[in-house]
Design a protein around this nucleic acid. Structure first.
Lengths: 181, 181
DNA sequence: TGGTTCGCTCTACATTCGTTGAGTCTCAAC
DNA sequence: GTTGAGACTCAACGAATGTAGAGCGAACCA
């Protein structure tokens, strides 16, 4: 194995450990030393590779292949429900790290705000109404609340339910919010 | 003014400053020194009165008159929407402090979990169905997501909308989730 | 094979935090 | 008016954290 490969591999291991730790305890309680220990590496190396804790976090929450989903104006509700069903149960640590930290870490909050604003505008094009953006915001708020309650707070009834069950119950709600008529 | 009154008043001032600071920046970033400064008091006094930071937080999030609302089995949706409309725009710092910190502070998470579990059981009695608890959990998750998005993250379209607008848009969703038929 | 680069570690510093114990000052009781 | 209690402050400690710089050892290039 070449030197460059080994270096890249170590960096990826640190990034993975960081993602997991940020997702588990949030930005403030996750320490450089903790990340380094989880990655089997010296804390100074983390600094050397990422410069600062903020930068490490920024890299950690940056999901690799996050392509925007297509919007068919009428089937928006179904598409969103599909996305939620997919995400529930298999939410990636990057997103969880962002969710976990966005209430206490200003950078995380800002990142989420801009990402959400883009998503809201995107959804809103599928809801041709004067209050389209508000409806889209509610859709985002609802799915955010759902992920937080189930994956982070681990509320019992939600955690035990299957994604299909949840999505079925949520369908009327999403349809009424995304109704274009 | 007697000595006891003055003492009580100081304690209340500290508690108010703590509530506000916890609500603004969360448990980890709020410091005893910060609370003390906001209350115009020495940090040591905060310790003397509350013993530890954890205890201060516990006292800060303990809302004074939080009586459980009555549940008329059929009008559950309307009652919940009423509660949401009331809370939106005038959410107390104690609740915001709890929301802000519950993803990163284990004690806050535990407090929220038990409070929510009780609330879910309460709502579930108004939804006589096999999946009543799951439906109730979804209702809680939705209103939590709404409060977080609007009051803590301050997402624009949500913040600009009036409580009435929001409640109106949410009504079908709540009715479908709390439908007892 | 000798030198140099580079991945990586060791040690340490400065800051900030929660927390503590001694001390000060004011007010109430006798 | 003296005394004592209690509200409040001062100064400091120990631990943890982000961060910096020097140094080590092995892999690469000549």
């Amino acid at each position: 194995m070449t030197r460059q490969e080994r270096r890249r591999q170590t960096e990826e291991r640190i990034l993975g450990a960081a993602r997991a730790l940020f997702a588990e305890v949030g930005y403030e309680r996750a320490t450089i030393r903790g990340v380094a220990a989880a990655a089997g590496v010296d804390p100074a190396l983390v600094m050397q590779y990422f410069g600062a804790k903020d930068e490490l976090f920024r890299r950690a929450i940056h999901a690799p292949g996050e392509q925007p989903l297509e919007i068919a104006p009428e089937r928006l509700a179904d598409l969103l429900l599909e996305a939620i069903r997919f995400k529930l149960g298999e939410t990636d640590d990057g997103s969880l790290a962002l969710f976990r930290s966005m209430l206490t870490h200003p950078d995380a909050a800002e990142h989420f705000r801009t990402a959400t604003a883009r998503q809201v505008r995107e959804f809103a094009t599928g809801i041709p109404r004067p209050d389209g953006e508000l409806r889209a915001s509610l859709l985002v708020a609802i799915s955010m609340g759902l992920t937080i309650a189930r994956e982070l707070l681990r509320l019992e009834p939600l955690q035990e339910a299957t994604p299909e069950q949840i999505v079925d119950l949520l369908r009327p709600a999403f349809q009424s919010l995304s109704a274009s008529g």
